[in-house]
């Protein structure tokens, strides 16, 4: 399983990667594996605000639907259009071309309660 070092993880299997003041958000390799073939990803449009710990969208796999929880609070500045037409990218490249939204971080303190790699590994080992 691919679990990068430089990310912050949620207990709900999302990841956030800091790029300056922008947080890039997606779901983990573990999450995509559990969901199986992803066919639709529904996220709000640019300009909408997401809240740390709150649902911001859904991901539909053939077998099940799952809510997406935002790791951080802030305004959406970009959504990944590519996964609308090619949702399988979330399965194939969950950390690269399968990212979901980019959010302008309001408060970097949001990152503090998130899990580091060791803590996330520990979570999914249970």
């Amino acid at each position: 399983m691919n679990l990068p070092e430089n990310l912050n993880y949620t207990k709900d299997h999302e990841w956030v990667r800091l790029e300056g003041s922008i947080g890039v958000i997606g779901i983990t390799d573990y999450a995509q594996g559990e969901l199986g073939d992803i066919v639709f990803v529904e996220v709000p449009p640019i300009g909408r605000k997401v809240e740390a710990g709150q649902v911001f969208g859904t991901v539909e796999a053939v077998k099940a639907v799952s809510d997406l929880y935002s790791p951080i609070t802030g305004e959406i500045v970009e959504v990944n259009k590519e996964i609308q037409d090619s949702p399988e990218l979330v399965n194939k490249e969950p950390y690269e071309r399968g990212w979901m939204i980019k959010v302008k971080i309001e408060n970097e303190a949001d990152l503090a309660p998130l899990l580091d790699l060791a803590a996330y590994k520990n979570l999914i080992a249970k």
């Binding site: 199986g36 073939d37 053939v62 077998k63 399988e88 399965n91």
Partner: peptide, 9 residues
């Protein structure tokens, strides 16, 4: 077995 490589495949 619910799947091997994936439902779509």
């Amino acid at each position: 077995p619910v799947q091997y490589t994936g439902i779509m495949d």
